[in-house]
Nucleic acid binder design. Sequence first.
DNA 1: TTTAAAGAGTGGTCTGACCACTCTTTACTA
DNA 2: TAGTAAAGAGTGGTCAGACCACTCTTTAAA
Lengths: 219, 219
Amino acid sequence: MGNPKPPSKMFLDIVEELKSLIKEEGIQTGGKIPSERELSERLQAGRSTIREALRSLELLGLIETRRGEGTFLADFRKHQLVEVLAAFIMQQPESVLDVQNTRRMHETAAISAVCASDASRALPVWASLLMKIETEGAILREDIIREMVVASDNRLSLKIWFLLKQYSRVRFDEMTSVQENQVVKKLLTNLLIGDEVTTLEAYFEWIELVEGERGERIE
Amino acid sequence: MGNPKPPSKMFLDIVEELKSLIKEEGIQTGGKIPSERELSERLQAGRSTIREALRSLELLGLIETRRGEGTFLADFRKHQLVEVLAAFIMQQPESVLDVQNTRRMHETAAISAVCASDASRALPVWASLLMKIETEGAILREDIIREMVVASDNRLSLKIWFLLKQYSRVRFDEMTSVQENQVVKKLLTNLLIGDEVTTLEAYFEWIELVEGERGERIE
DNA sequence: TTTAAAGAGTGGTCTGACCACTCTTTACTA
DNA sequence: TAGTAAAGAGTGGTCAGACCACTCTTTAAA
C-alpha cells in the first residue's frame, strides 16, 4: 500500500494547491483568482503547468476565465461539465442501465418526499398540471417529473437528475399520449392527497408505459 | 440568444475534436490515443494547447497518461473527478443537507434493491458481517452500507455514493457502538429474509442513532 | 545465446515570445 | 473645465523550441 508517490502529476498538485489557496484566501463565488503569472511565481511552476491546471478546472466549470480580465471562481451551478463527462461515459454501453435505474431512484425519492411534505403538496403547480392535461389534452413528460424533483427541494438531487435525464432513453421532450394521461392524472391526484403508495404505483405504471419492457425495476 | 460565439476557447474545441477523433478511429477503452505531437499537427494547434485539453480530460479521469508510453482512453469507472469536483461543490454550505439526503436516498434504494433480489440476499457477505459483530463486538459502519450499495449492483449509484459519503457528516470510518449493534443486527437479519419494510425501519433507526437529531428524513 | 548499450518515441516542464482583449491612466482637444 | 482619444499596464490565448525522464525496441558486443 505504501505509495511511493512518483514525482509525476505536478499539474494535479497545482489543482490541490489552488483549492487550498482559494480556501485560505476566502475567495468567494465570482471572486477573482490570482493571475496565471502570479500563480506561476507563488506556486513555483511554469505558466504552462499552471494553465493546464486552470484549464482542467475550467472544463469542470469550476472557474471562469475572461480574456483581458482574469480568472474567477465560478458558480458551480453552471456546471457544463456534465456534457463533456457524459459524452465519454456513455460510450460504455453497460452504464446505460445504471443510468436508467439511478434516474428512477431519484424520481421515486422525489415523489416520496413530496407526498410526505404538506408544503410541497400544497404547491399550485400540481393543479396547474392537471388543468393543462384537461384543457390541452397532453403535457410535456419532463414537466411533470421535473416539477416533482424540484418540489422535493434537493438541489443536488435535481442536478444529478438533470444529468441523468439527458442520457436516458426516455423521451422526456415528448408529449404524453392519451393512454399516459390517465396514469398521470392518477399520479397527480394521489400526490395531492399525499397517498405515497398509490402515487408511486401510478409512477411505475407510467414509466412502464413509456420505457416499455426494456430495463429493470429498481426495486 | 444569437451567440456570436467568440473565437476563444480553442482548447474546448480541441476537446470536441478529440471526442470525434476517438469515435471515428474507434478507440476502445484502454486503447492508445495519438501522441501529443501528432495531435498537434493533425489538429493544427500548438502542443501546449493540445496538452491543456488532454490534461482536462485527465482530471476528469477520461484518459490516462503514462510517461514514456503515451496517452490512453481510460475506463471511466476510475474517474477520480468526483473528488475534485466535490471539494469545490462542498464549499457551498447550503448543500450539506442536500448531500445528506441524497446519500440516504441512494442507501435506501440500495436496501430495497437488495431485499428484492434473491441473488443479492444470498450473498455470503451478510452472514459474514453478522458473524463479525458477534465475534468482534463491533464493525466498521462503512462496511455495512457499502456492501449493500455494492450488492445493489449499480456502479453509477455506487460511484455517487462514494462521493457523497466523503462529504457526509456521518463518521463512516468509526466502529459501531454496542447500541448500534442491536439495530444493525436487526437490519441484517431482516435483509436476509427479504423483509424490506423492517430492514428499512432498522436502517432509519440506525442513521437516527448515528446522525442524531440533525438533518431531515428524506421521506 | 545472453546481455548491454544506443536510439527512437513519448509525456513533463519551463522559458520566452507574440497576440487580443479589458481597464485605467494620461494627455490632448474643444 | 469637460469631454474624448491615445497610451499603458495587466491578463488570458497561443505558439515554438528546448530539455528532461521514462519506456520500449533495436542493435551491437560479450
